[in-house]
Design a binder for these strands. Structure first.
Length: 570
RNA sequence: CGGGGAGUAGCGCAGUUUGGUUAGCGCGCAUGGUUCGGGACCAUGAGGCCGGGGGUUCAAAUCCCCCUUCCCCGACCA
């Protein structure tokens, strides 16, 4: 491609509305332009990168015998009503009507459509297992689109769905997909971790998220260097402490006046105790009725963990009226003593004595609260958010944390959709059985943004060779020098006929502009032709990543690009 | 949805507080010239419903009301 003919509108200045580095660089490199909040146009340079990633994805999907399909973006309400998600998906599902006022939505995901396809066309165990995938545009009406293409409303996703005869088969499909995902992200040159993720209300299933390590990430990864355990913060398990009760030291309960002292800081400050000696009592409203959760004053509740133990669909912090109804006191004075609702307590509260807790009475707290003398716990469980240096649930060594960008998510669904949508098959004995499913997603645009987050410097993008829009950029310093120009075109043509994707900067621009643009768009190899080296019959080949420059004879350029950079002779 | 900020040329911004010439500046863009190894210089030029609507006024980018779009911080997700 000739740069002079290419639509690569680079920007010198960073657009004001771009916050994260990948967003800034994609705008500056002329890859994307915003059309509306969370909706982008992808320009030729981005399109080429997308194609590279899609090719990698296709190769790895096909390798595990996953078959590509294309499902509709516009989906009828009936299917979503059948699965129940027309109601449950909420506002993120963009709904609209056609000319005859029939309800439709723009597909945010495709479980309904694909399950419908399979239930109509797969009836025998002979046709299972089956894995189908597509690479397609999704629409989710996100509450807050952010960070450019990282969290867009319209975005390209590779989604795959597996259909198996039984649990064992589903786990095998899941494992194959795990391997495929690992290979995909490795081939993209990404530093990533597969972490355990929460499965939500679908019990018995499991899930992994593929996280690219980056400080700009929105997710927190908790991991153990010792045993390799890694999980999303919302899932990360903590080893229960092995403390034992010491009944002999229990002091008698002591009711104290704490006027206006509501927060942990206020109460502990007022009473002169440290937060570890306070029981934080949180009242939650759930579809199974109100529950209380107890954690130590210096710990934070993990609502997802609590939700899983309670086994409810919905769980939110109680509002003031519910708190008053349950504790007979305003917010800030809740405690376990005398509560009649189920009490879930974090492991860290097992065996501790003489704690401070709310008195369930306005302006009152208790000192020296002990269990089971003063209150009874329904269930001790791992309820709190993991913190750095908490003991690993597997090996007890201190946990560490890093930020990550979720680029992929694999999920064993079980029979959730085959139940609601009645996707069954006949087994060898002619008996009708439910198909066991899995679903698997990769955010294509997000993966590219994540790659840029991980691979850039002050001058611009440094594309991993496998994702780069072009492999080599040819840069004649002055296009008006006939000999230089002629040789540059010779090299350009030779590279192309050798199957190397080359971008030829034939623009009549000053060298500075061309060098800056070359760095910005991040092509791995830059072949510079200037009068100085050219008179010695040499070109300069610069590695965008290392900055290393080699002087190479003109006629050896093709060989250099093939051998030296791509590592193997062709 | 709650909180904060912003809409002026393709990009980055000034002007708005205190209404008053033809709405400015840098970059970019077009044409010509001098240049040519890290975002040159000179000259000429094109490009604006000052986010939209309504109001106040002799007069509105500027004051008032309504609407709208976008960005950032919190609860969802690939």
């Amino acid at each position: 491609m000739l740069f002079s003919k290419a639509l690569i509108p680079t920007l010198r200045e960073t657009p004001a509305d771009a916050e994260v580095i990948s967003h800034q660089l994609m705008l500056r490199a002329g890859m994307i332009r915003k059309v509306a909040a969370g909706i982008y146009s992808y320009l030729p340079l981005a399109q080429r990168v997308f194609q590279k990633l899609k090719t990698i994805i296709r190769e790895e999907m096909n390798r595990i015998d996953s078959q590509e399909v294309t499902l509709p973006g516009v989906q009828p309400a009936e299917l979503w009503q059948e699965s129940g998600r027309w109601h449950f998906y909420g506002k993120e599902l963009l709904r609209f009507q056609d000319r005859s006022e029939r309800d439709f939505c723009l597909g945010p995901t495709h479980e309904e459509v694909i399950t419908d396809l399979v239930r109509r066309n797969v009836k025998s165990y002979r046709h299972l297992p089956l894995i189908l995938y597509q690479i397609q545009t999704k629409f989710r009406d996100e509450i807050r689109p952010r960070f450019g293409v990282m969290r867009a409303r319209e975005f390209v996703m590779k989604d795959a769905y597996s259909f198996d005869r039984d649990e064992a088969g589903a786990e095998e499909s899941y494992h194959k997909m795990y391997q495929a995902y690992s290979r995909i992200f490795e081939r993209c040159g990404l530093d990533f971790r597969a972490v355990e993720a929460d499965t939500g209300a679908i019990g018995g299933s499991f899930s992994h998220e593929f996280m690219v390590l980056a400080d700009s990430g929105e997710d927190i990864i908790v991991y153990c260097e010792s045993c390799g355990y890694a999980a999303n913060l919302e899932k990360a398990e903590i080893k229960p402490p092995e403390n034992s009760p010491s009944p002999e030291n229990q002091k008698p309960p002591d009711k104290v006046s704490t006027p206006g002292q509501k927060t942990v800081e206020e109460v502990t400050g007022f009473l002169g105790v440290s937060p570890e000696h306070l029981i934080k009592t949180l009242i939650f409203s759930t579809d199974k009725g109100p529950v209380a959760a107890l954690v130590r004053g210096n710990h934070e509740i993990n609502e997802i963990k609590l939700k899983n133990y309670v086994g409810c669909e919905e769980l939110v912090l109680a509002d003031d009226s519910l708190v008053e109804k349950v504790t007979h006191a305003p917010r800030g004075f809740a405690g376990p003593v005398g509560l009649t609702i189920p009490i879930y307590a974090d492991h860290a509260l097992k065996g501790v004595v003489n704690m401070v807790a709310g008195g369930n009475e306005n302006d009152v707290h208790f000192k020296n609260v002990n269990t089971p003398r003063d209150y009874q716990v329904t269930l001790y469980a791992d309820l709190r958010k993991a913190e750095v240096n908490d003991p690993c649930a597997r090996c007890g060594k201190p946990l560490k944390m890093r930020k990550g960008i979720e680029v992929g998510h694999i999920f064993k669904l079980g029979t959730k959709y085959s139940e609601t949508l009645h996707a069954t098959y006949l087994d060898q004995a002619g008996k009708e059985k439910r198909i066991v499913m899995g679903c698997y997603g990769i955010g294509v645009g997000r993966t590219i943004a994540a790659a840029i987050e991980q691979h850039h410097d002050k001058d611009g993008i440094i594309f991993p060779p496998t994702l780069a829009p072009y492999q080599a950029l040819i840069l004649p310093v002055n296009i008006n020098e006939p000999k230089v120009c002629e040789t540059a075109f010779k090299i350009y043509n030779a590279l192309q006929s050798d199957g190397i994707e080359a971008l030829m900067d034939d623009r009549d621009e000053r060298p500075g502009i061309k060098f800056k643009d070359a760095d910005l768009i991040g092509i791995p190899l830059r072949i510079t032709l200037g009068r100085r080296t050219f008179e010695e019959g040499k070109v300069e080949i610069r590695n965008r990543k290392t900055g290393k420059v080699d002087l190479v004879n003109v006629e050896e350029t093709i060989g250099y690009v093939n051998d030296h950079f791509f590592g193997k002779p062709r």
